[in-house]
Design a protein around this nucleic acid. Structure first.
Lengths: 199, 199
DNA sequence: TTTAAGTAAATAAACATTTACTTATATTTG
DNA sequence: CAAATATAAGTAAATGTTTATTTACTTAAA
């Protein structure tokens, strides 16, 4: 039996993300992807049932999965609040700034009904997506370290500015001066922490 | 000369937004849109040069324009910081929660290269998009009311949580209980204000 | 009567997916 | 141990559909 060429599978994934990042989700076609990867369209269908299946697997496994791993690296839910937050912020910042295609597809996940649905289903199936963060926040609410808000609200308050900063980072990457530095990110993180902390 | 039917133009705009919100930008086609509006595809081309032109005008004029108007209603850049922020937050919240299709297309504006480019070009052409907010923030930095960050960074810190809250609002609209109330939004706004204020 | 607004149907290109075939190699067989 | 075989991996080209856009015509009212 002829063995499968793993490089081709990798090419499919990475080029699909590249096309989406450069030309948009609405401009990704199976034939364009096959051509970019130097393979026959049929080869994509050996691994993926159809286009929808490809997009969802790309989003859930390649993007969300890798993102979760990167964000939680060296994070411990028992950490002190400020230390934990800074770890999460820096992990997210470093991962996303080095993986723009993943960032772009994550952004599409907030717009595209197909991807949005896939994200919610993953959450329901596997319990909470970022459960260590969930427990970290729950503990600090109980400890009275931070204000008491529902989890989803807390995430909006604590992490959404970071995503906008990553976006600014990419914007400035095409300009003469990059203003979004690690120091600035940490400074913003401190601002967010100051807002949510009790006392 | 036969007069143009304004209802048809309105139908094109509102149905395009509706299709995008329900099925995604990637599933909007000119023929589908024409069918939904009960008109010939040609009629769309009387008003718009091509699909790209339609999407950009929809985004810039219909969505961003109306959004800017709604957000700045009864806002005065001379307002005290807390009062101004709360006004901006409530205006945004009320407008978006009643205009989900606009919210969805705005989200697409953060992913789709086509729309993203259109947004940046509008900003460059017309100077700053939300200039009263720009001046409001600049003044409060000078007054030492708030921490000194670049404008784009400041916007990430001050307004991005609100967009996530609107998203949560729509999520909860399909569930038994709506947890995102005006009171909660104001409470989140206060949290953000507390973080950014000096002292 | 003029003319832009509008239509139905056509066009050509691009699309997702399939058909019919070829290739490479792990395993079996002589 | 080498030739034969089986078989999934892979290809090129075709399928039928949908796409954006246009052509050729009709309609309404100033």
């Amino acid at each position: 039996m002829r063995p499968k060429n793993l490089e081709k599978e990798e090419a499919i994934r990475s080029l699909a993300l590249k096309i989406i990042a450069e030309e948009g989700l609405e401009n990704l076609s199976m034939q364009k992807l096959a051509k970019a990867a130097g393979i026959s369209p049929r080869t994509i269908y050996l691994k993926y049932e159809n286009k929808e299946d490809l997009l969802i697997k790309l989003f859930v496994e390649e993007v969300l999965g890798a993102y979760e791993t990167a964000v939680l690296e060296n994070f411990d839910e028992q950490m002190e609040f400020e230390k934990g937050m800074k770890k999460l912020w820096l992990n997210t910042f470093h991962y996303l700034k080095n993986n723009r295609p993943s960032y772009v597809l994550m952004q599409y996940g907030k717009s595209s009904p197909l991807l949005y649905k896939a994200f919610q289903e993953k959450n329901i199936q596997q319990g909470d997506f970022f459960s260590p963060i969930h427990r970290f926040l729950t503990r600090h609410i109980k400890n009275n370290t931070i204000r008491n808000f529902p989890q989803d609200v807390l995430r909006a308050l604590l992490f959404s500015p970071l995503f906008d900063l990553v976006n600014e980072y990419f914007d400035h990457a095409q300009r003469p001066v990059q203003i979004i530095s690690e120091a600035l990110v940490l400074s913003c993180c401190e601002t967010v922490i100051k807002g949510i902390k009790n006392s």
